[in-house]
Amino acid sequence: MKLTLRVWRQKNSNTQGQLEDHQLDDVSPDSSFLEMIDDLNEKLTNEGKEPIAFDHDCREGICGMCSLVVNGVAHGQDRELIKAVTICQLHMRNFHGGETIVLEPWRAKGFPILKDLIVDRGAFDRIIQAGGFISVGTGSAPDANASPIPKKNADIAMDAAACIGCGACVAACPNASAMLFTSAKMGNLNHLPQGQTERYQRVVNMVTQMDKEGFGACTNMGECEAVCPKEINLDFIAQMNKDLITAALKGIGPTV
């Protein structure tokens, strides 16, 4: 099928970017979205032009590297049947011949654009460094049943741990807020016994770091959960809010 791709091209973080049109004449409906860009890049390279820079790694929806805003929606999942996928898991059969597809990078102050469609998501690493861990003596892994955990908590922790840190929540949020990510990255630990010791210091530190990175505040619209490829939901943000209130009442200040 034939497609027009309007792609954001930007040389580096210091320059202005703009949209650039590319015609594709022979896109296979069976190819994945990223393979379609690969084909275009091959063509561009053969023509001696600069290929489009975009992030990707596993291409099976588990690593969190791919990050494209497709026609205004993070990971492009705006079609009825397509929910909870990363863009690497989307196929061209979901598009129509003759369509124009607009490709943009995640846009947020906390995610500076490095080149074309690639942004720097180092802010997420720093939020995790601020508290998304537990301090334990290393050694061999303990038995999974060594400490009893209610099934409900184990399930919630597992749901939170599904976050692959892709940043679609930030990209989709009208306020470029990172609350869904931050709440998931503490939600996994805060629902397990091992995470309790540092629980309230963790929430204060991670929230403080999140604010420092320049992300916006939550206005409870739920745009984030609508695009999350791992279906992380707003409950984690509510829990984070509640834990921050408790931490404030306990008198815990930030150490980051």
Partner: peptide
């Protein structure tokens, strides 16, 4: 304060940005 911060948090604007969930009440607060 928060509304100003939220505006600054998206310092480069999308050419196209579609909302999937948000309703008029939320956007007009």
């Amino acid at each position: 304060t928060l509304s100003l911060l939220n505006m600054q948090a998206r310092d480069s604007k999308y050419v196209q940005h579609r909302k999937l969930n948000a309703n008029a009440a939320q956007l007009s607060m």
